[in-house]
Design a protein around this nucleic acid. Sequence first.
DNA 1: CCCGTCTCTAAACCCAGGTTCATTACGGCG
DNA 2: CGCCGTAATGAACCTGGGTTTAGAGACGGG
Lengths: 196, 196
Amino acid sequence: MNLGLETGDAAPALIAALRPRAEEARLWAERTLPKGAPIFAAADGSDDVVLLLSGLVKLVYTTEAGEDWVKSFILDQGVFSGRGAADAAAGEGYGAVCLEPCRFVRLPRSFVERSAAADDNLRAACAAFAAWVLARKQAREAALLTMSPEARYRMLRTGAAAALARLPQGDVARFLGVTPVAFSRIKRRLQADRQG
Amino acid sequence: MNLGLETGDAAPALIAALRPRAEEARLWAERTLPKGAPIFAAADGSDDVVLLLSGLVKLVYTTEAGEDWVKSFILDQGVFSGRGAADAAAGEGYGAVCLEPCRFVRLPRSFVERSAAADDNLRAACAAFAAWVLARKQAREAALLTMSPEARYRMLRTGAAAALARLPQGDVARFLGVTPVAFSRIKRRLQADRQG
DNA sequence: CCCGTCTCTAAACCCAGGTTCATTACGGCG
DNA sequence: CGCCGTAATGAACCTGGGTTTAGAGACGGG
């Protein structure tokens, strides 16, 4: 099982397949944002497709009570999007925030869909990416349902140590489903166990 | 937000689109199984596509410690499948068990994929179904990550009361992510709150 | 009709995580 | 250099869920 942090190569392949189409349509506009800046907010209702070329992004749910919970991280290269106006209005949306300076391209979802319909190669890349996303979601669902926060952290540490080093601990905690305080305790407990 | 129990009409539409193809290929063989019987086990590594025509099925993860956790329920009409041999070997698979007498058809995944490639109508039904599955998974992920078990139960009660009445409480508990004992406490607490 | 079996509820105790407040460590920045 | 805001840790207390055991109904088979 994994926790959905490995990049795989489905996203880079999709970016590569989209790029010529977007350039041809003069939609390939690279933007940059500094650390801490939002790419979109949950309330925006954006459903643009974002191609992350470099940097580090977190996708966050915000509850009615105002807590943030991290849906996922996107490292270096990846593709993600919001959930559109309808979902945003229903409170099911999530925001995207840069955790490092980011370079990315935004494409309208309709453009991506039209392009995929007209391009077998691109459609295959989309399908591969969708399959990869689904597999990751399954794994995350299983982890949240069947494992304790501590077990999820152990798995994250063994499977994504490099990513962990780049992430603020508060965000890691919110990704694992606990508070930063509890996460600090978990780390201490595991360290003590290793030595004792 | 919802918890992924509403049927929608994507699954019935997919069944309807697949049926003529399967009949033509003489693969439409309706089977029945009694309450309690497994349709497939996690260890089977089956990736057949199952079309549930009537009945009630639960999909269950089984941890190394032997606990069962309910991934989802399929009521009356639905489409689901296992995750194949590779995932089964990696311990990421899940089993399917009848909670009521079930009538269903099994189709090889490869047949469904080939048929979809050759049939625009079927491909559209597959795409709609995949989009619906993804939306449900997002909602379930959000619920598991951001809500307490009690809050998940309240949502389930308001959003899927009819389904709840058909489900054994132990399975509901495992679906919500708690033990049956804790689930019993939650119900009592909510009843007391309503009266007090 | 009785007897297992299964499901659900109840009660007692334990523990991991939540909450709150205080303290320390780390970076900008004047 | 000292100041301040943020992030992380530490400690004390609370609470909700896990675990175990027991008992009450429901159901099916003999």
